[in-house]
Design a protein around this nucleic acid. Structure first.
Lengths: 176, 176
DNA sequence: CTCCTATACATCGCTTCCGAGGTATCTCGC
DNA sequence: GCGAGATACCTCGGAAGCGATGTATAGGAG
């Protein structure tokens, strides 16, 4: 999630760590902002991996800023993260939202559609939450009211997401 | 998530690790089943913390099973995990679903309603995804079609969840 | 008779995340 | 002029997850 967010924001232009932290917080609904002890080591990791470079910009404000810029390798890594087959199984809402937000960095609508297609396929597959093997599960299958409720909310959320996915894919691939 | 799932399942009776793994996989839609290298160390941790005990059951099947049982401290920990104020900020769908599935282990409907109330309050608060400070955000606020789409799906999912929360809470607290 | 799969548990190293704590400077209110 | 809060970065230790790998046995297919 974090790596994707950092690379995604930097793809739009240079930013310093503190700014990055605020943007990520805004994008993920200010739910548990990224801790300093998470963000700065992550930046170092990405720098060590050659995915971004740093240029010190002194004097402007309180503390000297380290302006971060994506390298070619960084851009390639972003593309890879946005195109990963694993994106169908993302269960962290924030992770999925961050991916959606940066899908625009993929170069064509076919590439952009691929993660959405995989997600769609996953949600309509017997390997998912809503099946016991090949048998589709229903809320009525459960006696316990909480298990029943869980099934209801899971189904409703899934239906909402499916409707959105189908609509978005229709816009993205008008021909198919 | 994992700790909650283990304690939750064991609260219904003794299970061995391998069974636990299958049950957790079924509950979370078989999305990336818990790895052995995650589950067994977790069981050891909980055992070391005095939250569960193990009894070896030999001979019955291929390998000897370690039947796990909750202790009093384990039951108390489960109650604590189900009642935590942090549950409003859970962004992992599986984590939230596991919590819902085991809410029945709380002893009264007031306690069961509390996490749902907190979730409801969070989703309707300016600290959440849908606000920029106090200003509510709308899909139309964004130019980029993906940012727009992200706002649309986030809003739709949230609305779906809110409707379910309100309905469930009405069943749980008929008086309020 | 042999191979494959399922059952059942374990350890190792790697990576990541988090909280706590530390260091500085600038600005604004009082 | 003094403290609070924002800006801006850092390091450290601990906890937790994951993939790889290892070790058994049982049962069924070929």
């Amino acid at each position: 999630m974090l790596e994707l967010a950092i690379l995604g924001f930097l793809c739009d232009g240079s930013l310093h760590g503190y700014d990055l932290r605020k943007r990520i917080a805004a994008l993920t609904g200010h739910v548990r902002p990224i801790a300093d002890g998470t963000l700065y080591p992550a930046i170092k990791r990405l720098e060590a991996a050659g995915l971004l470079t740093r240029r010190l910009e002194a004097g402007s404000v309180a503390a000297p800023r380290h302006m971060l810029s994506l390298t070619g390798a960084g851009r390639a890594r972003l593309t890879a993260l946005l195109s990963e087959p694993a994106d169908a199984f993302i269960t962290d809402e924030n992770h999925w939202f961050v991916l959606l937000a940066f899908l625009r960095h993929l170069d064509d609508s076919a590439a952009q559609a691929r993660p959405l297609r995989r997600r769609l396929a996953f949600l309509t597959t017997p390997a998912s939450f809503f099946y016991d093997g090949d048998r589709p599960l229903r809320a009525a299958d459960f006696d316990d009211p909480f298990r029943k409720g869980l099934m209801t909310i899971a189904t409703a959320t899934s239906r909402t997401e499916l409707a959105w996915l189908r609509e978005t894919l229709a816009d993205l691939e008008p021909d198919s």
